[in-house]
């Protein structure tokens, strides 16, 4: 299996770093335009390495997000797993989409995630997050093309790395 050759730890570092981005302190007015970095990273890597990263990865990253944000334990984990499932299920289709179509798909996936989070907040009786949750989805879709370009470069470097160095 080719996935064995490429090292995985750089990807884990990328995933955890993207997750940690939610904790970077920023002024309040930036909140509505903070993209959901962790979800975007998960979607990208499940789409590109579906045999290496799957639902387990999505769940773990979601759990990390829950702990960092002090959310209900399992809230982001569930939302990210569902998004991961959809990505895994359709990864062959969405991988060959042209960029604009892919961005639309990302928008839909992020919206599904936001809806699940919103729904769980409602059921658990947590105060709703308001409009910011939905503008964040839009922000995520807008920054997807550059983020994907960066991730592509990172992936190429990781895949073409000399395996003896791992």
């Amino acid at each position: 299996m080719p996935g064995v050759k490429a090292p995985r730890w750089p990807v884990w570092i990328i995933l955890v770093a993207m997750t940690a981005l939610v904790s970077i302190p920023l002024p309040d007015f930036v909140t509505p335009v903070r993209p959901p970095w962790a979800t975007m990273a998960i979607i990208y890597w499940i789409m590109m390495w579906p045999r290496v990263f799957g639902l387990g990865t999505a769940w773990l990253i979601g759990l990390l997000l829950d702990i960092l944000q002090g959310a209900l334990l399992g809230q982001h984990a569930l939302a990210l797993t569902v998004v991961g499932y959809l990505t895994l299920r359709f990864h062959l289709q969405i991988r060959i989409f042209p960029l604009w179509q892919l961005t639309m798909t990302i928008f839909a996936l992020l919206a599904i995630e936001a809806f699940i989070l919103f729904w769980i907040d409602g059921v658990a009786g947590n105060p709703p997050a308001g409009v910011a949750r939905w503008t964040q989805v839009l922000a995520g879709a807008i920054v997807w093309p550059p983020v994907m370009a960066l991730m592509d470069r990172a992936r190429e470097r990781i895949e073409h790395r000399d395996p003896t160095f791992t």
């Binding site: 334990l73 809230q75 797993t81």
Partner: peptide
């Protein structure tokens, strides 16, 4: 399985 686990956790 993961969904059930997450919901139980929550």
């Amino acid at each position: 399985v993961i969904c059930i686990l997450s919901i139980a956790l929550m």
